[in-house]
Structure formats: structure tokens, C-alpha cells
Amino acid sequence: MYDRLDAVPVYALRQGKVKAMHYNHVQLALKRLGEEIRMPIPGLKHLDLILQKNAWIIVDRVLNDVPVVAWTDFATRERSSLHEDIPCQIKHYHANAVMIMNRSLDAMEMLLSEKLPEMLPDELSDVLPFRKKDD
């Protein structure tokens, strides 16, 4: 479990939101695949994305997993529907963190869409047919 967010000084702290689609997809993946998912970000050679229930962290693999940006403190208690964006805190640990945020979330969505069906055990990925009604 990645726990270095408090050990590294924060460059900037902002209130933000994540799209409901991203949040819902990550929560589904975490329920199915475990409490932490780590994936490389395509096009960003030395950056990985670590997904946890309470934080999504982009880390620099070359610099001993120093955080670059993190989405934390997801405000889901007041959430009344699945389509609303989720307020959160966005912690920047690098001056250029803004430049990779959207690209990383888009890559995350692409990777989860492609890899989630492959990573699921066969019994979880099968679709059961509806029973036919007897006439």
C-alpha cells in the first residue's frame, strides 16, 4: 500500500473534482482486483498510476516512487447519484503536475476498459443468459 503522500511536501493543494465515470470505473476495478492497482501511464515513460480506494497517485518510478500528483479525500458521503462528479482534493507535488493530470486520467480509463475484462477470473467475466419462460 502506497503511503508516502504525507512524507513529501505538497507544492500546491487545490479543491477539484473527478468525473463520475472515472470514479465509478476505479471503484469497480478495486472491488474486483484488490485494494491497490498499479499501472504504467502510456506515453509517460517513467510515471505510474497507483489506484487505491481513498487516493489515486501518480508516482515517478525512476525517483523511488516520489509522488507527482494525487487525488485524495473523495467526498462521497453526500453523493446522491452515480452520474455526479466527485469533489476531492488535488495535491500537486511537482510544478508541472497540471500538464499530466488529464492525460493520465484518460490513459487510466483506457487501460481499465481494456485490461479489466482480461484480469477478471473467468467466473466473474461470464455473462449469464436469462432463463426462458415456460409457455
Rank of each mutant, 00 (worst) to 15 (best):
residue 91 K to E: 07
residue 92 H to R: 06
residue 93 Y to V: 09
residue 93 Y to E: 00
residue 93 Y to C: 00
residue 94 H to M: 07
residue 95 A to I: 10
residue 95 A to M: 11
residue 95 A to P: 04
residue 96 N to F: 09
residue 96 N to A: 13
residue 96 N to V: 06
residue 96 N to M: 08
residue 97 A to G: 11
residue 97 A to N: 03
residue 97 A to H: 07
residue 97 A to V: 06
residue 97 A to I: 05
residue 98 V to H: 12
residue 99 M to L: 15
residue 99 M to G: 12
residue 99 M to D: 14
residue 99 M to A: 15
residue 99 M to H: 10
residue 100 I to T: 08
residue 100 I to E: 03
residue 100 I to S: 04
residue 100 I to L: 12
residue 100 I to W: 05
residue 101 M to N: 03
residue 102 N to M: 12
residue 102 N to L: 14
residue 102 N to C: 10
residue 103 R to E: 15
residue 103 R to Q: 11
residue 103 R to V: 15
residue 103 R to W: 04
residue 103 R to M: 09
residue 104 S to H: 03
residue 105 L to G: 00
residue 105 L to Q: 05
residue 105 L to V: 00
residue 106 D to M: 07
residue 106 D to C: 10
residue 106 D to H: 11
residue 106 D to F: 10
residue 107 A to I: 04
residue 107 A to T: 04
residue 107 A to N: 00
residue 108 M to E: 05
residue 108 M to V: 11
residue 108 M to R: 01
residue 108 M to W: 00
residue 108 M to N: 06
residue 108 M to S: 09
residue 109 E to Y: 10
residue 109 E to L: 10
residue 109 E to Q: 11
residue 110 M to G: 01
residue 110 M to L: 13
residue 110 M to W: 06
residue 111 L to C: 06
residue 112 L to D: 09
residue 112 L to Y: 03
residue 114 E to V: 04
residue 114 E to L: 12
residue 114 E to G: 11
residue 115 K to Q: 10
residue 115 K to N: 08
residue 115 K to G: 02
residue 118 E to M: 07
residue 119 M to E: 15
residue 119 M to S: 12
residue 119 M to T: 09
residue 119 M to G: 01
residue 120 L to Q: 03
residue 120 L to P: 07
residue 120 L to Y: 01
residue 120 L to T: 06
residue 121 P to H: 05
residue 121 P to V: 15
residue 121 P to Y: 08
residue 121 P to E: 13
residue 123 E to C: 14
residue 124 L to S: 03
residue 124 L to H: 03
residue 125 S to C: 09
residue 125 S to V: 13
residue 126 D to W: 04
residue 126 D to C: 12
residue 126 D to I: 15
residue 127 V to E: 15
residue 128 L to D: 12
residue 128 L to A: 15
residue 128 L to S: 12
